[in-house]
């Protein structure tokens, strides 16, 4: 069940990425976490553009975690691009925001994000977040069956 998956994390705050990785370590979960620090790099990664053209080194992710506010193509812009892309639109995207503002959540859902989660304020919550993401998006179900919502 606990097969290693790849999660692409688009996050401009490196501290938040460390805490998220820490949450997965505490779980403990061994998924590969790839960090890019803006939406543009995430887009390049997903398309396999240089410097991410080697798919052995830069595997296509099973899940995209997205901060809505980033420089150079923010999370919402990236969601719009993904929606309009025939192949990439199937990739599950979870928006991980530090904003408690409800309109953000609505926008994210409208643009096709599967979930909108608020970044935890402590490590135990980060661990729970990692476990939740794992159960909802990264556990292999019957091949071909859709992911649980």
């Amino acid at each position: 069940m606990n097969q290693q998956k790849c999660i692409l994390v688009a996050e401009d705050n490196p501290d938040d990425f460390v805490l998220l990785r820490r949450g997965f370590e505490k779980a403990p979960l061994t998924h590969k976490l790839v960090h890019v620090c803006n939406g543009k790099l995430a887009w390049d990664y997903l398309l396999g553009e240089p410097p991410f053209s080697d798919r052995n080194q830069h595997p296509f992710p099973d899940l995209l975690l997205l901060d809505p506010r980033m420089p150079a193509l923010d999370g919402f812009d990236l969601l719009r691009l993904l929606q309009s892309h025939p192949e990439l639109s199937a990739l599950p995207v979870v928006v991980l925001s530090s904003s408690l503002v409800e309109s953000y959540a609505k926008t994210a859902k409208r643009l096709g994000a599967r979930e909108y989660l608020v970044k935890p304020m402590d490590l135990d919550e980060y661990r729970d977040l990692a476990l939740g993401l794992h159960q909802r998006w990264l556990v292999d179900s019957i091949p071909g069956a859709p992911h649980k919502p």
């Binding site: 705050n13 501290d15 938040d16 805490l19 904003s99 503002v101 402590d122 490590l123």
Partner: peptide, 22 residues
């Protein structure tokens, strides 16, 4: 303004809380 408070002030705080916990 409250959006900014919510987002931009929580981010550094999370770092402090998280790393102290670590």
């Amino acid at each position: 303004f409250s959006n900014i408070v919510s987002h931009d002030m929580r981010a550094p705080l999370r770092t402090m809380q998280g790393f102290v916990a670590i």
